[in-house]
């Protein structure tokens, strides 16, 4: 085989590898969801971030408007500090509230923003004042158990389920 032919096939081989990598990155991977629009950073303090991860989406009305940039612990307030990178075209009022939500029953966690009514908008380095923590399943279960035990104590019904049904009937 002549030199030019070898070179040609080697070049084709390398190109095929690059195409395969681009396919894996763009079609199979999340490279296409990387956005290169300029962002501004705001902080939010949460009592509990649950299973929130870095690069989790920040959504408002279900639309992705940014990503979680960093999660840390503030030792002065004893709260989790979450830095959010919001995309530049989207502006939110200063009294916007942030809550950690779960997509679907077992899906990934994301930060949901609910806009407020303030005239001024959040700027770079600003802080979201109103936050709502992630729902922790154990807390939920213990609250439920505690309240049903309380009902049982006051009504002295035959069982907690019956007491709850009675309470619902009244």
């Amino acid at each position: 085989m002549t030199r030019e032919k070898t070179d040609f096939w080697v070049g084709l081989f390398i190109m095929l590898g690059l195409v395969a990598l681009a396919f894996l990155a763009l079609r199979a991977g999340n490279m296409s969801s990387f956005s290169f629009t300029p962002t501004y950073r705001v902080q939010a303090h949460f009592d509990n971030v649950g299973g929130l991860k870095i690069r989790a989406p920040v959504k408002s009305s279900g639309v992705v408007v940014g990503r979680v940039a960093a999660i840390g612990f503030d030792n002065q307030r004893f709260q989790a500090t979450v830095a959010l990178d919001l995309e530049q075209p989207y502006a939110f009022p200063k009294d916007t509230s942030a809550s950690i939500l779960t997509s679907g029953l077992l899906g990934e966690q994301y930060v949901g923003l609910t806009p407020g009514g303030d005239d001024k908008n959040l700027a770079d380095g600003g802080t979201i004042e109103f936050t709502q923590s992630a729902v922790v399943l154990e807390d939920l279960i213990s609250k439920f158990l505690y309240s049903s035990a309380e009902k049982e104590g006051t009504k002295a019904g035959p069982d907690a389920g019956g007491a709850a049904a009675q309470a619902a009937g009244h």
């Binding site: 990598l21 894996l24 990155a25 079609r27 199979a28 991977g29 999340n30 490279m31």
Partner: peptide, 19 residues
């Protein structure tokens, strides 16, 4: 099929580590 794939495969954690 594709959106679940894109949602779960990370370019750095999965593709780059494979390379």
């Amino acid at each position: 099929f594709w959106s679940q794939m894109q949602g779960g495969v990370d370019v750095i954690d999965d593709v780059l580590n494979g390379v």
